[in-house]
Design a binder for these strands. Sequence first.
DNA 1: CCAGAGTGCTCATACGTATGAACGTGCAGC
DNA 2: GCTGCACGTTCATACGTATGAGCACTCTGG
Lengths: 341, 341
Amino acid sequence: MKAPRQSDVARLAGVSQSAVSRVVSGDIDRIPAETQERIRAAVKELGYVPNAAARNLRNKRNRLLGVHTFEAVFPHARDDFYFEFLLGIEERAEEIGYDLVLFTSTGTSDGRRRIYRDGTNRLNLADGTVLLGAATDREELARLWHDGYLFVHIGRREVAGAEIPCIIPDYVSAADRLVTSLAERGHRHFAYLHSGIEQEAYADRRAGYRNAIERLGLHDRSPGFRGEPELTEEWLVGMASGPETAVVAETIGLAEQLRIGLAARGLSIPADLSVAVLEGSGDESGQRWDCLVVPRKEIGRLAIDALVARMENPDEEPVSRLVACELVAGETVAVPPQSKE
Amino acid sequence: MKAPRQSDVARLAGVSQSAVSRVVSGDIDRIPAETQERIRAAVKELGYVPNAAARNLRNKRNRLLGVHTFEAVFPHARDDFYFEFLLGIEERAEEIGYDLVLFTSTGTSDGRRRIYRDGTNRLNLADGTVLLGAATDREELARLWHDGYLFVHIGRREVAGAEIPCIIPDYVSAADRLVTSLAERGHRHFAYLHSGIEQEAYADRRAGYRNAIERLGLHDRSPGFRGEPELTEEWLVGMASGPETAVVAETIGLAEQLRIGLAARGLSIPADLSVAVLEGSGDESGQRWDCLVVPRKEIGRLAIDALVARMENPDEEPVSRLVACELVAGETVAVPPQSKE
DNA sequence: CCAGAGTGCTCATACGTATGAACGTGCAGC
DNA sequence: GCTGCACGTTCATACGTATGAGCACTCTGG
């Protein structure tokens, strides 16, 4: 009942274990067809299957790629957060013949997931790992980097003293282009709705926004820009009476709040105010916001490719990669109202 | 840059490799606290992390569980087919400290996935595997069984000469109870809408239906029951004029067709005909069918448990397990119309 | 008829870990 | 002062594979 080994096959075929190994793993330059046949027949008869652990130990290669998220995957997959990434990851892994390990064993009682648990790094079971998730633990990232472990991170992550290779949705450029296109439609006075989230992805949006505002000589009066995430009454009043004709919101949620707040004052989008969102809007059938599209599936695929590239070229400097985000038109941007011209 | 091994730690701590192994893996009965301290310090200093491959080779245990589907997972996950199963699988694996391997490398050009590819069985990378999917390949299942590989299948699968351990939604009982509850509301004449799918899960539904019909002495006139899956004009006519007051449909799709066919004749559900479906209806906001609920998440969890149980008790006979499905009331069942009494 | 090259295969070893057996030391008991 | 034992540690080995080096043999060309 025990799984047959190469030596069992060898005995049956009347050759040595190394001959079997050569045939099984394709190193057959000096093995005549007839012997190969004999060995293959024996392999088949015994139902021999290579032992992954042994191969691994010997080769340092697994054809196994890890996926680590700092929270459970599937619950979130449903709200589309991880979903498209996984789709791309799975698709690409399948194409190039790798299996995927979902690191689930690393869960702690508080629902977070750790890479290092009592000193063990489960990740090194895989040849390399794609990390993702909003709740990235920077300390662990730093340690992983210092250990020389092979990984890429989806989304930009800045960690002092470590050069994390990332696949980065280009929010800087997307935000810049979004503002630019609003300016082209005549908007000069902008406000920015700040989510309060302190994370690279949001810093990038803010940078892109600021870039465009300055480059084009536009005017900005943003409560969020100065760091207050809430839509206060005062702000809404200011917005209604002030010169602003366009608002750039970081999230759909903020935009929705804004719409409600405006409606309460008898103002509507986009007639009175144009609103664009720096986030993909999904397919939900509500308001069709002018927004951007993060090519998540593509990013998943690229992450796998980056990982494999690094595996094949261990000496090369790891490098991050920007991925462009498209802007999509919705129904929430128009030319500025005449009343404010 | 190379990862430190136990022997490196040992040298630094001034002990032998085996002492390190003992401390690292918790076999410390005869190692005094002071030595442990020294070793732990060395582990920390070098950033030692156990090599998973070597451990696996030595232990024959991986703490890796496989998930194999005969089609790509994620595309289908979205329509909820795999989703809840995966949710349960991930959840339970996390709870008991296992990682998951998604077998993606086994894809073939035709989109199907194979377990055995040029003789190699990738699955044995994991300690055991959960198999699922509509498109189960029975030959591979049989071979896997004969190879003595450890697995469980989600959903009943019958393969000649092999006793596949399955986690089975109890469609037999659910169908029986469904008919029973219809009978309790006064229905005596039934028809059954047959999907034409030849698979155990549907055979079970049919068996349960038939059981109840016979046990309760009810009347059945089912085109589907005799094997024709289509809703023909004749059948609809027969249904409208015949004595039937209740229809049991295998799928939501069939039920929808039926509703449209009836509407075209001016008949409505449930006023003229009660309809219940032997399938979960999901959350879509359309018609709220009387139907059953397959506890998918629970089944995913049970599959993991069954797998682990078999790992821990290799000698015990593998055994399949039935999981009860609840019936949920919708808006498509009523008492029989007076006109047909 | 010998040097040299090529062919078909095997030997031996390393990968990193876990663990039963064994070894040496110190100490208690008689 | 010898026996026996507990303690702390190391030895030696096995897990299954891949591969460079090496061996025996055959053939070719000069």
